[in-house]
Simulated scan of single mutants.
Amino acid sequence: MENKRRPNLTFTPIGQVLDSILDQCRSESAGGIMHLVHVWEKAVGPPISDNAKPFAVKGSLLLVHVSSSAWLHQLRFLKAELLEKLNHSLTNERIEDIKFKIGLM
């Protein structure tokens, strides 16, 4: 039996594949969570954006995952300010409430 050699295939990292799929499903022009993540990072800036990331949107409620209970507590005090900054940066959407939860980031 003849041993056939396969051509040298290069592999693509799974993160790159997932980013591509998410970009197709949730483009910035269509809004969605990916657009909100970019706006969030610019609106709130570091270190908040390093410790809190938008996870989901349901209607006008934004669910944000935070890195620790300390950040959860702090961001609850800053909720009104964060809502104002976020809505100022959004063009068409409007977020009326934010729920913070410790979760994967």
Rank of each mutant, 00 (worst) to 15 (best):
R76M: 05
P46C: 09
D19S: 08
R94Y: 08
S68E: 10
K4Y: 09
E2F: 05
L90S: 04
Q16M: 06
N8C: 07
T12K: 11
V39D: 01
P13Y: 10
V37H: 12
P54G: 10
V64E: 00
V39S: 07
S69P: 03
N92V: 03
G59N: 08
L62S: 11
V17F: 05
Q16W: 03
E93K: 10
A80Q: 13
V17L: 14
L78A: 15
R26E: 14
G45V: 07
N8Y: 14
S20R: 09
F55Y: 13
K53E: 06
D23N: 12
I33K: 00
P54D: 06
V64M: 02
M34S: 15
E93L: 02
L61V: 13
L61I: 13
T10K: 15
L75Y: 14
L83G: 11
C25D: 08
G15S: 10
I102T: 03
T91L: 05
K101I: 09
M1D: 11
I95E: 01
I98P: 02
R94W: 00
R5P: 04
L61Y: 03
R94I: 00
L83R: 10
I14C: 04
K42C: 04
Q74C: 04
L9Q: 13
R76L: 05
S20Y: 11
S68A: 08
K99C: 13
G32I: 01
M34R: 15
V57G: 00
E2S: 08
F77S: 13
S20T: 04
H38I: 10
S89E: 14
G103F: 04
L61R: 12
L9D: 12
A70D: 04
V39Q: 00
M105I: 09
R94D: 00
S27F: 02
V44K: 11
L63E: 03
